[in-house]
């Protein structure tokens, strides 16, 4: 989202920010070179990916369970894959180029059917 550049007499005094957590509007997903792909079929819901994710990019459902990946913010560090304890791993990294134009479902099939 392009931020609106306010004039000097429009900004809040003291460079105060009144909108908590508004950095969600800044999408760091574009930084990614690789992306994690999740396989719910083998996932054991240990939530290690969640507790170790630097970018709060593990989506959580109302039961507190892993529900996917927030690709708007995931920077593709790969910690989730590295720390995933299930056998086989329920998360795999793929190049962004490989993911281009594919839905999450399509990509998942491609990665985990091997």
């Amino acid at each position: 989202m392009a931020e609106k550049l306010l004039k000097w007499d429009e900004v809040l005094i003291g460079a105060t920010i009144k909108d908590p957590g508004n950095s969600k509007n800044y999408e760091t997903g574009s930084w990614r070179v690789e992306r994690p792909v999740w396989n719910p079929d083998t996932c054991i819901q240990c939530m290690f990916c969640w507790v170790y994710c630097p970018d709060s990019s593990i989506l959580v459902d109302e039961n507190g369970k892993m529900a996917g990946i927030d690709y708007d913010h995931c920077k593709g560090c790969g910690i989730c894959v590295e720390q995933c304890p299930s056998k086989p791993k329920s998360l795999q990294m793929v190049l962004e180029a490989q993911a281009k134009g594919k839905t999450v479902e399509e990509l998942r099939k491609e990665v985990f059917s091997k």
Binding site: L6, W8, I13, G14
Partner: peptide, 11 residues
């Protein structure tokens, strides 16, 4: 942003 904030402060 810095410039706008400093001039807002000056005002």
């Amino acid at each position: 942003w810095y410039f706008e904030h400093k001039m807002n402060q000056l005002k």
